[in-house]
């Protein structure tokens, strides 16, 4: 028998409240081109991106700490497959431990030739030093900055 299909698309808009902590973080990125983390007073760990409470101690974080722009690669991947709603491949991104931080922050890695996967992976290996770079025009968003080899 004939088997039919019906195409359905979900499209819903959300306006997520960011709260004071993330708002401060983005304002600093936009206005100063700087990345800030927040310290948990009990463990002394600096959480980047900043959270208003530590999920380990469940205590509110206290003081702001400017971190980076230097740091080291903690994890990376290089994507060669096209996914819907994601950029055209290839691209590299991952997590970087910025100087002064205790947790790693996500971002794109730019300025690396990705044609040869093994060679690119060797350049991005865990522990490699990188530096955060900021866009000239910043809107206060995660993509206002990226990482390049130091």
């Amino acid at each position: 028998m004939e088997l039919m299909e019906r195409q359905e698309t979900w499209s819903i808009t959300y306006n997520h409240a960011l709260g004071e902590t993330a708002s401060y973080f983005y304002a600093k990125i936009r206005d100063e081109g700087a990345i800030y983390g927040k310290r948990c007073a009990k463990t002394n760990r600096v959480l980047v991106p900043p959270r208003s409470f530590s999920d380990e101690t469940l205590l509110p974080t206290t003081d702001w700490v400017k971190v980076g722009p230097g740091g080291r690669i903690e994890a990376f991947t290089i994507v060669y497959e096209k996914f819907n709603n994601l950029p055209d491949p290839p691209y590299a991104f991952g997590y970087v431990l910025l100087d002064g931080a205790d947790t790693a922050l996500g971002g794109y890695f730019k300025g690396i030739d990705l044609k040869d996967p093994a060679a690119a992976a060797a350049k991005l290996k865990v522990g490699t030093r990188v530096k955060a770079k900021f866009a000239e025009k910043r809107t206060g968003a995660m993509l206002d900055f990226w990482f390049e080899l130091a």
Binding site: T77, Y91, F93, G94, Y95, G106, M142
Partner: peptide
């Protein structure tokens, strides 16, 4: 806001676990 702007998906997430 912190993570969705990145091209994260479960494959990429676990690729990073594999790298480590």
């Amino acid at each position: 806001s912190y993570e969705r702007p990145l091209p994260l998906g479960t494959i990429n997430m676990l690729a990073m676990s594999a790298v480590r």
